[in-house]
């Protein structure tokens, strides 16, 4: 199941693990990504908490946690080579995986169709 936020994060859920990243639309708007700051494994976030930072030359943006939970893995590859975020934002360039603490939060997120509508 894949869901989207108004702040342009996506979350894909398998079992109780949620994989999170930024959308293709967001990556396009940011321009060339030059830096990604990821949280430490084990960090706990509440829904909408500031979870990571993604920077282009012209802008720095916080990435918010779409759902609450504990970080179980981070994608070191994008921290080492931030250009990867532009290359495959909704695939190989996920940001973090978290262990969901409340599945019901997913209900408040958008499905793909609503997100497409949002970004027009």
């Amino acid at each position: 199941m894949k869901k989207y936020t108004e702040d342009h994060e996506w979350v894909s859920v398998e079992g109780d693990t949620a994989t999170i990243g930024i959308t293709e639309h967001a990556a396009g708007q940011l321009g060339d990504v030059v830096f990604v700051e990821l949280p430490a494994v084990g960090t706990k976030f509440k829904q909408k908490g500031e979870m990571a930072v993604v920077e282009s030359v012209k802008a720095a943006s916080d990435v918010y946690a779409p759902v609450s939970g504990e970080v179980v893995a981070v994608n070191q590859a994008i921290a080492d080579d931030p250009a990867k975020v532009n290359a495959d934002p909704e695939g190989a360039s996920w940001f973090v995986k978290i262990k969901l603490s409340s599945r019901s939060e997913l209900d408040r997120l958008m499905d793909e169709a609503s997100y497409r509508k949002l970004i027009g």
Binding site: F35, E55, S56
Partner: peptide, 12 residues
């Protein structure tokens, strides 16, 4: 590395 600076990062 201007994203550290006030004209981009503002209150952060």
């Amino acid at each position: 590395l201007s994203t550290r600076e006030q004209h981009i990062r503002r209150d952060k």
